[in-house]
Every structure is written in structure tokens, then in C-alpha cells.
Design a protein around this nucleic acid. Structure first.
Lengths: 339, 339
DNA sequence: CGGCCGATCGGAAACGTTTACGGCACTAGG
DNA sequence: CCTAGTGCCGTAAACGTTTCCGATCGGCCG
């Protein structure tokens, strides 16, 4: 069932069928309707590879997900929401989505570029965090349109999309301040990761603005995982001027801090208030439920797609400044006195 | 940079280049090496759409993820591991992966079939659970090779892959029995879902084998989410002959049961042992950590890919019997007296 | 009435591969 | 020396589209 067969049955040429199905103007309304009707009756589906070949564009974008095998980001449920948002936004823009495979060990950097060329991909969305976004370097150098979420790399045709980590952290601190807390400590992520550094900066800025003291012992580093949060919580609770609230740059670490508090015989939120970041599934499951700064996954995905489309259509887009998506503070039991 | 250009520079015909790059036998080792070398120097990547067009196979399989928009299964972190496993297995088999978009509201059923035809997809992997796997019906009717994980639909060229839900449930009950528990209740999922029904069957079989009584009040239904687990836990704890252990068919419900126990002033695992199913991220975060039956996501993904490849290569595969993948019991604090 | 223009369509050439078929050179066997 | 066979390679025809370039046919204007 190809276009030739459809043309034969419609009594027109393949050129006319193509024009009819692609909504070109040079076809009378009558024949267009007739062809359309017949096509849907016969279940005709145009052959995309053939279209791609002659049009030299595939209407397909690639998605790079994790560069290494079994990267830790993989288990981040945050990724799933992002993936869903990206897919939805892309399908609304009539783009197809191809999941790029992790590069083999032989040619790790060029692999993605090869894939882009092989499939005529028009752009790439990158969901890996630094330093795994190195693969972006080769793509950017080849002027492939790229949109990265929480990536660090920049290039002539790459845009970056990111949550407003600083503002989110500020909102968390302000919330704790409004509850009456004056001794607010923080657990950071690995500070070489931009989101971790930005969240710390937001914490510091809010404290400065509110006139809160931030002794060095109030800032301690974790690795975003549970155990580091427990350890960091223990360190913070051992400080002489014990903090009454903790802002953790990640939910798992926040839960860890709650564990540390429980181990020390402290009650959350009475003796210690805790606010996390990311709104992972578990945040709503623990007791008390964890207050947290939620990222707008849908917003991030849509912004990435919108920026990528601009890049593809050669619209004038600003590739220097990252797109910043607002966050939302979810107040739950871990910072609600009444709970 | 096409094959013609590469042929010109190598001083051979395009046919020879094609044969050299595709490892065909009719090329001398010397010219093959020369062409290979030149190709990698020039960064030549064969045009897949053109290959697909002439070879009439795309080396690409489609992935259907959720048929409806924002289906609940989407937030299941289980899906992410599955997706990763599928992708890895496929890339090892030199297949490309295309994420199929959710069908529009106009033609929900035929959409996926259209996509398969358009892109020349050789097979489809379905990650949606019933009743959302209705889209499989059309695909199966068209003899498209399909592999579904936890799907219910069956067809001439569709294989089903599933965890050994019954055995997993049995193992959980046996574990509780070995700890000395004799009054073991269960919280089921919606029983129209095969996994929920199978887990209940496993529970019942184990109880029967071990000679444990199962009064009707010991079996109560939830919807796999947290709140239903809390409610179910309350119901079970109000039973006259109060159970000392609960097997929940899902982790969120298990956590809910733990909340209900805490509300009733009971200590887990001293007064009540709890075992869940699925090993969601939160299972390791709650306190006490939740014992659970973990599904082998990698095994499921690899089995689905292997079965699909058999289907594609027209190997004789048994489409009647589902592939059953073993589960693994993770014993954590919620059922460990020492904890 | 002649020429021009717009609307509608068909013919045919691309797009970048793979592969059937045939050709050439060389070797082996008679 | 002739023939068959083998190893290597080139020619050209496909694959299913889109689109450039004309062609035809009215209608309209001068």
C-alpha cells in the first residue's frame, strides 16, 4: 500500500496525492477530500523513511538520557516525569522521539553525533546532569540544535533549561523563617553540580536578607543520597548552637536528616523542622510527610521543547541565558507545627 | 558526505563500499580495511532512512508507554528501571528505539498501528498495564510482533512477560511464617488487574500449604496507593483476632499499613510485621525500612527483548505461555525482629 | 479575438542506500 | 589449450516519497 497504489485507485498522479495529503494549495478541494477519504479507508500511512530521504528532514528529535550505563540519575523518579513531559510536548509539535542508546566504550563522544547523522535527527534533548553531559560537547561543536535540562555545557546552538534553584531555596528558608525559626542550617549536594551550588546560594542569600547568622558549621555537604543525609543530620544536631530547622538540597538527604533527628530523640517538626527539594515520591510517604520544593517537570519539558523548536527553525534564540523555570513550595508535616 | 562521495575518494564503486561497511564476504580484506579507515576519518555515517527504504527493515522497535495521558503508572518508578533495561537490551541487539506518542483522541486505537507502518517498525514493546493495553488489540490483529510486560492481551504474534507474582507472594508469606507469625493478613490490589490477582493467589496458596487460617476479614482490597493502605491497615487492625503480620500487594499500601499501625500505637515490626511488593524507592527510605518483594526489572526487560527478537526473526516462539521472571525477597526492618 | 493569468494536475528527476546480475582476471583441472 | 570455477568488483535498478517544471484548460482583460 504505497502512494502509487493510492494514486492509481484515486485516478490521479502520485504528485497530486502527495500534495493532497500534505495540505498543499495546488489541489482542488474536491480531489483532496476524495483522496483523504480513500487514504483513511485503505489505512494508508506514508512511509516516513522515504519522506525523510527526499525532504531531508526527519521530524524526529533524539533524547539522550544517561551517558554512562546505570548512572545514578537513572533511578531518579524526577526523570520519568521529565521524560513524559518532553514526549507530550514533542508529540503536540508533531515530532517523533528517538531514544539514543548509551555510547559504546570505543567511541564514547562521537557516538551521539553519529546517531544524529544516521537518523537525520533535527535536534537533541539532553537529560543527563554534569559531568555526564560531556557528550554535549561534540554535538554543540557540530552545531546540532541541543536543549539540555540541568546541563552545564554551552554552545552556539544549545540552550539550557533549569529550575530556579536559588529562588526555590530562598522560598524554603523564608517559609521556615515565617514559622519562627532563626537557626536554620542546610545540607548541600555535591557543590560541583550547578543545582547544588545554586540551592546553596539561594539559602545564603535568604539568610543574609533575613539577617540570620550562618556559622560555617551550619553548612554541611552530602551526596544527595539517604545515608549522607543521616550523617549530615547528625553533624548538624551536634553543633553547640543546635539549629531548629534544616533545609536539605535533596529529598533523600532531608529524609536522612529526619532519621538522624529521630535517633537523637527529637521530634519533627516540633524540635526540628525539615524542608527538602525535588518532591520525590517518597516525600509524601514518610511520616511526617516531607515539605519540599517541587520542580515543575512539565514546565521544564515544555521549555526545552519550545527552545529546541526555535533553534531548529533558525529563529533568533538566546543561547547564552538559560531558561529558568519557577519552583513550587509544598508545605507538609515536616514543617507544619500543627501536624 | 554520502556513500557516493566515500566511494569516489576510495576509488571504488558504491556497491563495494556498501559491502565493505556491511561486512559482506565479496570484498577483499585490503579494500575493506581501506574503506573502513577512510569512513571513520571522514566521519561518514550511513543514512538510515535510505537503508530502511531499500532493505525494507528499519532495525527499529517502538515502545508504547502509556496509552492515556498522565496515566498513573507513569509515576511508577518501576517503569524507569524497565525502560532502562529495555533500552540497554535493545541497543546490545543493535536495535533503535522509538518512543511512540500517546494516541490522539480522534483515532485512539489505530494510532499505534499507523506509527508502526509509517516508521517500518519491526516490533513493539508495551509497558502499559490493563486496561490500557487495549491498544495491543489492533497491533495483534495486524500481526505486528509485540512483547508486553504485565499486559493481559494475547495474540498470534504477541508474547507476554511478567514477574512471578504468585511465587513472590508465597515467598513473602513463608518468610513471615518462618519468623513465627501465624496470623497473616493481606492487602490486595484491584483484583481485576492480573498482578493483583496473582499475588492474592500466591498468598492463599502459601497459607493453605502452611495450614494458616484465612478468615475473610484477613483479605482486604486497596488500590495500590498510600491512602488505601492506611484504610486497609485500619480495617485489619480492628479485626477481633488481630493479625500479627501483613502482606501488602504493593509498597505504597504497605507503607500505609505501617502508618495505620503507628496510629494504633503498635510498633513495627515488634507488634506487626509488614512486607510489601515492588521495591519502590521509598521502601528503603521509610522507618523501619520496608521488606518487599523486588521485581527483576532488568530480567523483565531482557526477556521482553529476547522474545520480541524471536518473533521478528520468525523463530518458533510460544506465544501462548507468558514468560515468567523470578522475584527476589528483600528482608528489611519492617519484618526483622532484631531491627 | 489574442494573449495572459490562475488553478489544477502529470511527468520525471531526485534523495542515499542495497543488491541482483554480469564481467573480468586468475587458477585449477582435464 | 580450453573450460569451469572462484574471488573481486562495477552497473544499474530498485525502495517510496517530494517537488521542479511544464502542460492543459478556463476565464478575463484589452
Amino acid at each position: 500500500m504505497n502512494i502509487r497504489e493510492l494514486a492509481r485507485r484515486s485516478g490521479v498522479s502520485t504528485a497530486t496525492v502527495s500534495r493532497a495529503l500534505n495540505d498543499r494549495a495546488e489541489v482542488s478541494e474536491a480531489t483532496r477530500a476524495r483522496i483523504r477519504q480513500l487514504a483513511s479507508e485503505l489505512g494508508y500511512a506514508p512511509n516516513e523513511p522515504a519522506r525523510t530521504l527526499v525532504r531531508r528532514r526527519s521530524d524526529t528529535i533524539g533524547l539522550i538520557w544517561d551517558s554512562g550505563q546505570e548512572a545514578q540519575g537513572l533511578h531518579n523518579p524526577f526523570l520519568l516525569g521529565l521524560l513524559s513531559a518532553v514526549r507530550t510536548a514533542l508529540s503536540e509539535a508533531d515530532y517523533h522521539l528517538m531514544l539514543l542508546t548509551a555510547p559504546g566504550p570505543d567511541d564514547p563522544d562521537a557516538a551521539h553525533l553519529q546517531a544524529v547523522r544516521r537518523h537525520n535527527l533535527e535536534g537533541v534533548i539532553v537529560l543527563t546532569t554534569p559531568p555526564d553531559d560531556r557528550c554535549l560537547r561534540v554535538l554543540a561543536a557540530s552545531a546540532v540544535p541541543c536543549a539540555g535540562i540541568d546541563t552545564a555545557f554551552t554552545g552556539p546552538r544549545t540552550v539550557r533549561v533549569s529550575s530556579d534553584n536559588a529562588a526555590g531555596a530562598e522560598a524554603a528558608v523564608e517559609h521556615l523563617y515565617a514559622l519562627g525559626h532563626r537557626r536554620i542550617a542546610t545540607i548541600t549536594g555535591p557543590l560541583h553540580l550547578p543545582p547544588a551550588a545554586e540551592r546553596l546560594a539561594g539559602y545564603q542569600r535568604a539568610c543574609a536578607r533575613l539577617g540570620l547568622p550562618v556559622p560555617p558549621s551550619y553548612v554541611t555537604e552530602g551526596d544527595f543520597f539517604l545515608d549522607s543525609g543521616v550523617a549530615a543530620g547528625r553533624r548538624l544536631l551536634a553543633v553547640a548552637e543546635r539549629p531548629t530547622a534544616i533545609f536539605a538540597a535533596g529529598d533523600q538527604m532531608a529524609v536522612g536528616a529526619m532519621h538522624a533527628a529521630a535517633d537523637a530523640g527529637l521530634s519533627v517538626p516540633r524540635d526540628l523542622a525539615v524542608v527538602g527539594f525535588d518532591d520525590i515520591d517518597a516525600a509524601a510517604l514518610v511520616r511526617p510527610a516531607l515539605s519540599t520544593v517541587a520542580q515543575d517537570q512539565r514546565g521544564l519539558g515544555e521549555a526545552a521543547v519550545a527552545a529546541l523548536r526555535g533553534l531548529i527553525d533558525a529563529a533568533p534564540v538566546d543561547t547564552a541565558e538559560p531558561r529558568i523555570i519557577p519552583t513550587r513550595l509544598l508545605i507538609r508535616g515536616s514543617s507544619r507545627p500543627g501536624a
